[in-house]
Design a protein around this nucleic acid. Structure first.
Length: 216
DNA sequence: CGTCGGATAATCT
DNA sequence: GATTATCCGACGA
């Protein structure tokens, strides 16, 4: 799948990326897979036919997209982690630009930060934001040429020349952290930065509000 | 350049 | 109630 084109056609226009980084999840035998504990409402699409999109919502604010890759009943998928934008760069940047509230003090000009091209789809959630992928696309057929969301071979580079592929552990997973099922184009600037899993201290929920009074 | 904490809510146990 | 296949801004070197 590295080097294939992943594209989404919407009313706003077409944004296409060339995939530079992917990650494999091997269904019910893989402790890091969403399907490890069996079928649920969220992972149902993974149990369906291959070539369809499995989109999930995570961290309370991000979407990630997978390609279902094994026959019906085998819930395996490949997470699309990063890509290089080849079509619709301005639209992708528009979607990726986080407009913050005007923090500029009176008399001062706020510096408009332009997102570098390499960062537009650098990371699984960024890729989804650049392509405007959300829950609606969960289950979409990626192999139907008529589908607005498609995965296809690149028009260029049909010569068979393929850049070197690097292999390493998956990003951000707590289980099976040493399994090297992440694949990326070596020396490509659009590949996401590796960050190992880091457990986070659960912020204590405020059970005792400030007005409660202990009478005992 | 690097590391670190916070945001934020669906999903699952 | 805990966990999470992440990202961004802040801060220090």
């Amino acid at each position: 799948m590295l080097g294939c084109v992943f594209e989404h056609e919407t009313a706003e226009g077409l944004v296409a990326v060339e995939l530079t980084e992917v990650e494999a999840y091997a269904g019910e035998i893989d402790p890091a897979s969403h399907a490890y504990r069996g079928r649920t409402g969220r992972n149902a699409v993974m149990y369906g036919p291959p070539g369809h999109a499995y989109v999930y919502f995570t961290y309370g604010m991000h979407f990630c997209v997978n390609v279902v890759c094994m026959p019906e009943g085998s819930p395996s998928a490949v997470l699309l982690r990063a890509g290089r934008v080849v079509t619709g760069e301005s639209l992708a940047r528009e979607r990726r630009t986080t407009r913050r509230p005007e923090t500029a003090a009176p008399g001062k000009t706020s510096a408009p930060s332009v997102i570098p091209a390499r960062d537009l789809a650098r990371g699984p959630a960024r890729l989804c934001q650049a392509l405007a992928i959300n829950r609606i696309q969960d289950g979409a057929d990626l192999c139907d040429p008529v589908s607005p969301l498609r995965l296809r071979r690149s028009d260029s580079n049909v010569s068979g020349d393929s850049p070197a592929i690097a292999v390493g552990p998956r990003v951000g997973v707590s289980a099976a952290a040493d399994t090297a099922w992440r694949f990326w184009r070596a020396d490509d600037p659009t590949v996401s930065v590796y960050r190992p899993y880091k457990a986070r201290t659960t912020r204590p929920t405020n059970h005792t509000d400030t007005n409660s009074v202990w009478t005992g």
